[in-house]
């Protein structure tokens, strides 16, 4: 049986679909800048709303974003 959380997410993703979504390529191209802004205490979601939107929709990109954030933060903290 499909998990109900997955079905809810799926229906929400249909209902909230927007015409101007970007793809994974563009998200990945801007992810390094997005992560640095976040670690600098800026608001990348406001500066790059379409990247933020993609990260909320795409598990693959979100996973890589979280990992990159941890990597850069940890190396910076221990420099």
């Amino acid at each position: 049986m499909i998990e109900s959380s997955r079905i809810k997410r799926a229906v929400r993703s249909i209902l909230t679909t927007r015409p101007d979504e970007i793809g994974c390529e563009e998200c990945l191209a801007r992810m390094d800048r997005f992560v640095e802004m976040k670690l600098d205490g800026k608001d990348p979601a406001e500066a790059m709303p379409l990247v933020q939107d993609h990260l909320q929709r795409c598990r693959d990109c979100h996973q890589e974003f979280e990992a990159l954030l941890r990597a850069i933060q940890a190396v910076a903290d221990r420099r």
């Binding site: 990945l28 801007r30 992810m31 390094d32 800048r33 992560v35 640095e36 890589e64 990992a67 990159l68 990597a71 850069i72 190396v75």
Partner: peptide
């Protein structure tokens, strides 16, 4: 658009 090392790390993560 970022530090070179952040860009490189992104490729390693991917």
């Amino acid at each position: 658009e970022s530090h070179f090392t952040t860009w490189a790390q992104k490729i390693a993560v991917h």
